[in-house]
């Protein structure tokens, strides 16, 4: 009897120690990867990053055109993707609710949320690049928008559903048409949640590389023309990291540090914003 108890306790202790070790194991990688990025990236940071264009092989330079291109394409994705995502989320939360169609769309949306991003790149290639005959910033922005939409759909659906029904009923009973109830009352009380969705989406697409490889491609020079191939940070990192040149590696690390810091800051901000949930 005694020995059984002792054995159970021993097994329990072993499992809990293993669980703790597993957690430390995961955190160990986080620290290692972040440490590498920060130390390598800091060494390569310089003001020229923001004043000079991407250099030819072996030379020094900056990432100005890449930062600009990324910002433009992310902006385009947000402009296209956020309204569509919010409207679709509105349909799910306000009209579709638990209907079969709404559940199907939620199901599909969740799959798109985890679908391989490179496939989205191929899709936009077939849709835009091949008919147009050339790579373009528009195609890159569209590919990013397609990745952004499911994130926004999901968060706006969830945060709209958290708005208590009494609010809707009170507004309807005052004679407000439903669309005004949604746009004036429901949106306002769910604003934080919906905005978080957009931020989460931006965090998601800022580091995306695969869908840009064959939509926006890359461009060594400055361009503000969305109809031409556009430089962007992730693809520049990819090309420079794969190259044999030390100066390109340094630039890649600097870009990596900036992208990682941006994305992590956004992700943490999102969590801080989401914490005080008023409706449950």
């Amino acid at each position: 009897m005694r020995s059984i108890v002792r054995r159970r306790k021993a097994v329990n202790a072993a499992v809990l120690i293993a669980a703790t070790a597993a957690t430390l194991f995961a955190l160990f990688w986080l620290v290692w990867i972040l440490w590498t990025t920060v130390s390598q990236g800091f060494a390569a940071l310089s003001p020229r990053l923001l004043t000079e264009m991407t250099p030819p092989p072996g030379a020094d330079g900056g990432l100005l055109n890449a930062f600009f291109g990324s910002a433009v394409m992310i902006g385009l994705a947000v402009v296209i993707g956020t309204p569509i995502g919010i409207l679709a989320g509105t349909y799910l939360a306000e009209y579709g609710r638990r209907s079969k169609l709404a559940e199907t769309i939620r199901f599909v949306n969740d799959i798109l949320l985890s679908a391989p991003s490179i496939v989205i790149g191929l899709f936009v290639y077939e849709l835009v690049v091949r008919p147009a005959g050339h790579f373009s910033g528009y195609a890159g922005g569209l590919a990013l928008a397609i990745i952004l939409v499911p994130v926004v759909v999901r968060t706006s659906d969830e945060s709209l559903r958290l708005v208590p029904n009494q609010l809707r009923e009170a507004a309807l009973s005052l004679g407000l048409p439903q669309w005004k109830v949604v746009t004036h009352i429901v949106y306002r009380s769910a604003a934080t949640g919906v905005a978080t969705g957009a931020l989460l989406g931006i965090a998601r697409i800022s580091g995306e590389t695969a869908p840009l490889l064959f939509t926006a491609l890359n461009n060594q020079y400055w361009t503000a023309d969305l109809a031409s191939p556009m430089a962007n940070v992730p693809v520049v990192i990819f090309q420079y990291a794969m190259s044999p040149y030390e100066s390109w590696h340094a630039l890649a690390w600097a870009g990596a540090l900036v992208v990682t810091a941006f994305v992590l800051a956004l992700s943490i901000l999102v969590r801080v914003l989401l914490r005080p949930r008023t409706y449950k």
Binding site: I84, I105, N109, I111, L112, F123, Q178, W179
Partner: peptide
Amino acid sequence: GDRAFRWLTAGAAWLVLFVLVAAAASMAWG
């Protein structure tokens, strides 16, 4: 206004389904 808004949101929701189907179809075609 109600009808228009409803159609607008429903259209956006259908777009999600459309992207999935269109992505699969375009790659099968390609």
